[in-house]
Simulated scan of single mutants.
Amino acid sequence: MMRELQVSLNQTQKVRLQAALQHLSDLASQASSSTLVVTVSDTIPVNGEDGILKGHGTSELDGKVVATLCGVVERVNKLVYVRTLRARYKPEVGDIIVGRVIEIAPKRWKLEINFSQNAVLMLQSMNLPDGIQRRRNAVDELNMRSIFEENDVVCAEVRGFQHDGSLHLQARSQKYGKLERGQLLRVPAYLVKRRKQHFHDLEQYGVDLILGCNGFIWVGEHAAPRVNDMVVDEEDSMVKDKEQHYETPLEIRQHICRIANSVRLLAALGFALSVEAIIDTTEASKSSNVEIKDMLGSEFYVQTAEREVQRRISILKKKRG
């Protein structure tokens, strides 16, 4: 898991970092000039419209709509609500998440997913090792620990909330399942935006990157799609035995550590995590001949902030034509 990054800056680095962050703040205000940012007790202008629906983060005081949260005012027809800038993770159906198994219960695994409650992955919502679609039986239940055990890292999809209030997951695709030979990082969930693609095969590094919507990030050795895990003869058994004694090559481990440090650095600076930003930071560290252990040092920390300023200026210029 990720710890809070402590960076010791000298006076020059402090001045450079402060200038970069101020520039980023100015650029953000330019980009959001058409949006209304409010703090607690600010009045939200509704232009005297009738039938206004007061949503999350709003209240009525002396006939006015006021904000009860800090954030951005959003409107959907007559509904007015405040979207917080640093919200906790709120699961939505279809979210790709990464979690850690904390308990094996009858016909289910319980996972920690960076939410106010643990999630549940039912045995019936999981592909069986033999790949055959059939009803789960008592033998399958007895063999649950051979699929996932405590502390295993698992990728799954949010299925929804059940009538009892519990959050259920499903892992019925080959892309879901146990994650091995890598690092699990935990970042604030608001830094991971929901996108069409959360699985990334970084071929140039031989690494898989999974950006969990819940703020759990997986960086690990690229895993070939599983076709069938069932052992059918002695030759297959020997292959499995080889896999158990397999070690990740040193170069791949170095790539994993470098990419993981890029994630840590971007998260510490409060920048949104995208595959493009992570690769850019990784490549910048390599081109600058920065050692993996020095990526979390003060100089590269400041350089990353300064590089983000240039990236956003470039984006703004492109938008303006």
Rank of each mutant, 00 (worst) to 15 (best):
L9P: 09
L9N: 10
L9K: 14
N10M: 11
Q11V: 12
Q11R: 09
Q11Y: 03
Q13L: 05
K14R: 12
K14V: 01
K14Y: 01
K14F: 00
V15T: 15
V15Q: 15
V15N: 09
A19F: 02
A19V: 01
A19N: 15
A19T: 10
A20F: 10
L21Q: 15
L21C: 15
L21V: 15
L21P: 13
Q22K: 10
H23A: 14
L24N: 09
S25Q: 14
D26C: 06
L27G: 05
L27H: 10
L27A: 12
A28L: 04
A28K: 12
A28R: 13
Q30D: 05
S33M: 07
S34D: 10
V38N: 13
V38Q: 11
V38K: 09
T39H: 13
T39F: 06
V40S: 13
S41T: 11
D42N: 09
D42M: 06
D42C: 11
T43D: 13
N47V: 00
G48N: 03
D50F: 04
D50W: 00
I52Y: 01
K54N: 08
G55N: 04
G57H: 01
T58F: 01
T58V: 01
T58C: 13
T58S: 04
S59N: 14
E60L: 09
E60Y: 02
E60M: 15
L61Y: 12
L61Q: 11
L61I: 06
G63Y: 02
K64L: 14
V65L: 14
V66S: 06
T68G: 07
T68I: 08
T68H: 06
L69A: 05
L69R: 14
C70W: 00
G71A: 02
V72W: 00
V72D: 01
V73M: 07
E74R: 14
E74I: 04
R75E: 06
R75C: 04
R75T: 14
V76E: 11
N77R: 15
L79H: 02
Y81A: 10
L85K: 05
R86F: 01
A87I: 00
K90A: 13
K90N: 11
K90R: 15
K90M: 10
P91A: 02
I97W: 00
I97T: 00
V98I: 03
V98M: 04
E103N: 02
E103K: 10
A105W: 06
R108P: 00
L111I: 08
L111W: 06
